[in-house]
Design a protein around this nucleic acid. Structure first.
Lengths: 251, 251
DNA sequence: GAGTGGTCTAGACCACGCA
DNA sequence: GCGTGGTCTAGACCACTCA
């Protein structure tokens, strides 16, 4: 029964950082992607999994539900849990909070980021309100173009509270993933409340690669850290037709 | 303690059709939307809610998580559950598969459906492929306008496999929720794989209530039943600005 | 009818927030 | 330090599927 043992030396549950259910979900995911359970295969029953992982069935269910919401498995009442047959395509639901570059990389394309401008300025009323800042407080605005195989797939306007950022820190944003830079200075986004809008405008973006029709799908989101403190407000305009948003909706 | 009693005459739990957690979530939702808990207000603690609804805390948590994923409340560890301040617009968690009319009704508006046309015809190549039908097989196409307080919020073009539908069945679609009609004939949608697009076109919709800018958010989705059989293909064009799509993304 | 997932309970312990 | 949410357990009963 190899692979079923998520060694957990601490008997005092609740001390660990990662929830057990999540840890098990990730282990199962690895086993599925690794080929131990091929598409169409039935996973062991929840009772068996509970025994194998030495965990209650409720916890297994948490993991199972997570896999289902990721579209990896299909849970059928009375029959069992089956690995979904996804045609080689990597599925990334909108509901998962991950960096866009990460998603692009997983689709087998070459992700890139071009910084158009980085500037410090007082926040607008809307921005201050969304970020719970005093009006007039400084923000750092980033304007980035996100590319996949050198083609622009999105323009992103991101605003961070600039509070006590040093110039050095500000400059560190010019490179790589914004999430990575934010992590480095302790701005950790774990949740985002997003709105979706259709936008038609010639004023979005820059450069020669803008779409002729000026059509975008806007992901307007406020990011929060673990404490519920807003850490970023970003408006990302996805060029219609160049990025596929997939969503698994369940009843 | 008015409103806290979800009268449940059956003591034999598990017999009921609707899961308790969901029922409680809907009750809480009604109470929030109804103004009992205004934006910013703190809801009773989970322990108190459990006592009030005469239910275990785990069940309350299920309901709480549902409300959180709908973007209705903000759960803060150590502090409590707070009603999110939303601007009165219709709010729907995209990841939840529910009928649009249902969502509208729960926001306290008067939902309506106007059928523009119902017709039986051979499916197009795209439609046949999405519904796993033999090419040339008949489909039933519905064109509907969905309204909230008499204002059109979406135009929907829905295609169902017409297979062995009788004329009588076809006509039954002219009234009420499409999901309800589908349920009656055994087409039960439990899952949908959806794509999101921005659309700018003057050819969408009909009537006088169309938006001047012709901007829509398209939800393009294939519905599946429990067995993974496609039961419907629908393209719903939400009028930009009249329907708010909220998404809680988590890491 | 045997086996599977779906739901619910009562109780426990932990981590976090705040006064 | 107390109250709040976060996680987990062991057991129970139900509904569904399929042979």
């Amino acid at each position: 029964m190899s692979g079923t043992d998520v060694t957990r030396t601490d008997t005092t549950r609740g001390t660990s950082r990662i929830p057990l259910g999540r840890e098990i979900a990730e282990d199962l995911r690895r086993r599925i992607v690794g080929g131990e359970f091929p598409p169409g295969a039935r996973l062991p029953s929840e009772t068996d999994l509970a025994a194998a992982y030495r965990v209650s069935r409720v916890t297994i269910r948490t993991a199972a539900k997570a896999l289902e919401s990721q579209g990896l498995v299909d849970i059928r009442h009375g029959s069992g849990m089956f690995v979904v047959d996804f045609g080689g395509q990597i599925r990334s639901g909108v509901q998962e909070l991950r960096s866009i570059t990460e998603t692009i990389a997983e689709m087998g394309l070459e992700p890139g980021v071009e910084y158009h401008s980085i500037s410090r300025r007082p926040g607008s009323r809307n921005e201050s309100s969304r970020l719970h800042l005093d009006s007039g407080a400084d923000v750092l605005e980033l304007q980035r173009a996100i590319t996949a195989d050198s083609e622009v797939v999105a323009y992103s306007y991101d605003v961070l509270p600039a509070g006590d950022m040093t110039t050095e820190v500000e400059n560190s944003f010019g490179d790589g993933s914004m999430f990575a830079s934010m992590d480095r200075i302790g701005l950790v986004s774990v949740r985002a409340l997003a709105e979706l809008h259709a936008v038609h405008s010639a004023d979005i973006g820059w450069g020669d690669d803008r779409p002729d029709n000026g059509l975008y799908l806007l992901l307007d989101q406020v990011h929060f850290d673990r404490d519920g403190t807003p850490v970023a407000y970003s408006q990302t305009y996805f060029v219609e037709g160049r990025f596929q948003f997939v969503l698994l909706r369940t009843r």
